[in-house]
């Protein structure tokens, strides 16, 4: 009898919601602003493949953390760092063992001028008034930029030239409006479909800074949500990885970061 009921319900579901899965659920995903574009593309691919639906809510990792801590109805958290997901796990608001690095950011030194060769020497020469970067206290890209400057021994030399954006969007704006000649930005900001569209860049070697790892975590609220669970799995699928690459991110399994047409501009 029970089996019949399930079959009946399944049939009813198939009739009314075909071609979507019978058990389609909805997940609400909190995503760090710097990842919102690739997240949209991944969410779209996920929806097509799974039949589930996801909604994205973007904000800074710090604000999203505060919202989750205070009961925001998110199922998955795509942070821009590794600390906040770890903190949520520790506080029992995220599922232990679900935390994983979904993307690795690539840092780029970027100028709005086309056809210029920029590299570490450009920073050493110091022939510029302003160098933009994200806030090292708040943004992993800002921390990485600070580490690069320190690795090159330029912390003192560049102290008076650095202007700090709250996040990489702002660092990008400082450069794109011409207010800073150079800026440390995310590769994902200056690439469109893997191509550099404007200006010139130096892909900063990963040896100059610690990895920019972005972690995802399944939140307590998403534990029994199949859409949320499957989305977590989908994040590391080949499909998602190819989307990540096209946006200038790399993943843990990549040996040397994404393969892109920007190699030729390396200094």
């Amino acid at each position: 009898m029970r089996r019949f009921t399930i079959q009946f319900l399944t049939a009813a579901c198939l009739l009314t919601t075909a071609p979507l899965s019978c058990f389609a659920e909805q997940a609400l995903i909190a995503v760090a602003s710097n990842f919102s574009s690739p997240a949209r593309a991944i969410a779209l691919a996920f929806e097509q493949e799974s039949g589930h639906s996801v909604r994205l809510s973007q904000g800074s990792s710090g604000k999203l953390y505060a919202q989750i801590y205070n009961g925001a109805p998110f199922d998955v958290f795509l942070s821009a760092d590794t600390e906040k997901p770890a903190l949520l796990v520790k506080e029992g608001l995220a599922i232990e063992g679900s935390q994983r690095t979904y993307a690795r950011g690539t840092l780029a030194l970027w100028t709005i001028d086309d056809g210029v060769i920029i590299n570490a020497e450009t920073l050493r020469a110091g022939d510029f008034v302003r160098l933009a970067q994200a806030n090292p206290r708040l943004a992993p890209y800002g921390l990485a930029a600070q580490q690069v400057i320190a690795s090159l021994g330029l912390t003192q030399a560049l102290a008076g030239k650095r202007v700090i954006g709250e996040n990489i969007s702002q660092a990008y704006q400082f450069v794109t409006t011409g207010n800073a000649e150079l800026g440390f930005v995310a590769m994902s900001q200056v690439l469109v479909d893997g191509e550099l569209v404007k200006g010139s860049l130096w892909r900063v070697p990963q040896t100059l800074h610690s990895p920019i790892a972005q972690d995802a975590v399944l939140l307590a609220r998403g534990l029994n949500n199949s859409a949320a669970q499957e989305f977590m799995t989908f994040l590391t699928s080949a499909k998602a990885v190819s989307i990540l690459h096209s946006f200038g991110y790399s993943v843990e399994s990549d040996a040397l970061g994404p393969v892109g047409s920007v190699e030729k501009t390396d200094g």
Partner: peptide
């Protein structure tokens, strides 16, 4: 502002930084 201490880092920005940094 560019968040430069003593030049453009006003209280509201400093406060926001504290909140964002948890």
């Amino acid at each position: 502002g560019g968040n430069i201490p003593g030049v453009t880092r006003v209280v509201s920005v400093q406060l926001y930084d504290h909140v964002e940094a948890l």
